[in-house]
Design a protein around this nucleic acid. Structure first.
Lengths: 212, 212
DNA sequence: ACACAGATAGACAGACCTGTCTCATCATCA
DNA sequence: TGATGATGAGACAGGTCTGTCTATCTGTGT
């Protein structure tokens, strides 16, 4: 339907708008980025903008969808490459994240950031954000399955917590060693596995190290 | 200096402003909350506002400082109470978080949210946010020490990742079982301890469950 | 040559936002 | 009583934001 999105040389008006939004919304935040700025930077007339996107919200939704596409594409590609090199288990995710954090334009997770800017949980934006994270978790579940995890769902659920936390800490400007800590955590959850709901309270496990 | 902040019955203009900011900034976000709204809701004249806070940024800074105070106070108090009941190790943090998430007004971490709304890492706001997280990590390091952790710094660093990640997932509207997963993760890091840089690859630990 | 579709340029409306300014009110204390 | 200082109410300026509208230009196919 409509335009072929990847065709040839000069990007059309709509594509230029989306590309500019991809950059500015991520860089400065959604509320801080005015339509006028996007219009100016993408070299498009205001009417052209509103022809393609009836309101700013429509552009925000498209921004999130496109960001999802390119982020997932890059992430899975990087993971699969490392995996094909046989360089480890689930913990290779930490290396992929580290590479992302090294990008000078890194400014945290676009979805987490947008979540923080969007109060209403019923909004379309929240839905797209949830879909993105569900998609990521689903991929990691698949990954855990392929790596032979006995409880891939549980592993993925724990991995999501670790990933989100690491992204946040990196965004906060934490020490680069967060990625080491992240890697260590990922190793742990992919080696020993246990379902958190199954009587995890009264399990009798000897502490590996003295104290408490 | 200046006013005694907790004295008696009717809160003064400044205190009402801060209280309203505490509510609205957290609820709707900083950019989305206009000065006019804060003024109206706190029943204060505009000039009174600008006498106490020369600019909105000053109020934002005060908001973050106060939020830090009340959040840390509640958090540490809840943790210490559970600790005094002898109900476990570091993983009691998961229970404290769960209680927080159950608050119907829960809308994620005010500091993470503000971080997402604030592009410049050099800004005063980022500084206060970093200070808050450093303070939290410091408390958890102390906690780990008291619990007999052989490497409290490392434990705290890992715990921070897990905590931030859990908060994010809860804010995303994740399954309530995130807290179980969080608890499980915290248990792991407080029981077996290892510095991530010290040959963590070739340690030989038997998996608790079969597979990989 | 002509029509048409899509783009550009930019004025404009109406709302909202931050911050300034004036004037009236009220409590306290000397 | 009268001075002082903090506050309340609200007009105002100047800027920015989203979204609408008109008028002009350009390329393409017939």
């Amino acid at each position: 339907m409509s335009k072929p999105t990847s065709h040839s040389s000069p990007p059309g008006a709509r594509e230029r708008i989306v590309l500019t939004a991809l950059k500015l919304f991520y860089q400065d935040g959604i509320r801080a980025t005015g339509i006028d700025k996007i219009i100016a930077e993408s070299g498009v007339a205001k009417m052209s903008f509103y022809r393609h996107f009836p309101s700013k919200n429509d552009l925000i939704a498209e921004f999130l969808r496109r960001r999802h596409e390119v982020w997932m594409q890059r992430f899975t590609e990087a993971v699969e490459t490392k995996l094909a090199q046989g360089s480890g288990g689930l913990e290779i995710i930490a290396d992929v994240l580290r590479h992302w954090f090294d990008d000078p334009d890194f400014r945290g997770c676009a979805f987490i950031n947008t979540l923080a800017e969007t109060p209403l949980p019923e909004s379309q934006q929240h839905q797209i954000i949830r879909d993105h994270k569900a998609s990521l978790e689903s991929y990691i579940t698949d990954l855990a399955t392929r790596l032979g995890s006995p409880a891939p769902q549980t592993t993925a659920s724990a991995a999501m917590i670790i990933i989100e936390g690491t992204i946040i800490r990196a965004h906060m400007g934490a020490d680069p060693t967060v990625c080491d800590t992240c890697k260590d955590l990922l190793k742990r959850i992919s080696r020993s596995q246990r379902k958190p709901n199954e009587s995890s309270v009264k399990r009798n496990e000897p502490p590996l190290l003295p104290g408490l």
